[in-house]
Amino acid sequence: MSDLATVSRAPARGMITLRGDFTSAKLKRAVKAATGHAVPKSGRIAGDGHKGVAWMSPDELLLMVPYADVASTVDKIASDMGGTHYLTVDVSDARAVFSITGPDANEVLARLCPVDLHKDSFAIGDFRRTRLAQVAAAFWRHDTGFDVVCFRSVADYAEGVLQRSALASKTGAL
């Protein structure tokens, strides 16, 4: 047996779900003020897991900020959005985050997710919501591997399948 990559559970991160109209100037300004990044294109993440914004669906973004700053960020968005129709939820404690690091981190995920994870198909900064074995998850590729986000209620399951998948030998298919 070999280790394809290292799987570790990351400490809780500040995460805010923001739903609204992406074309609204107020929403664009609020996202920029909260994360320092513009609204990303579909399937992309801007920034990183500590200060960033990811595209979740045509009307949903995941904002990531330091854990301690969540409440103040939600308040700031409320004042930035004014009377516009939008929704924010602090989901920091509803989520678990895993980091998969190592040159073959994509093989770990490729065993569990129905996603083409070749580096030419899924580049750094690409973000995908999908299925991780039997549970919903989202992940993105960064310089050293992947960060995976799933519901905290299934964190033990997700950690188990990720650890088990990382033990396998390299297939070299990717």
Partner: peptide, 12 residues
């Protein structure tokens, strides 16, 4: 048609 991803039936 919303994400543009090629989703297999296990994701749908």
């Amino acid at each position: 048609p919303y994400c543009g991803v090629q989703a297999d039936e296990t994701e749908l």
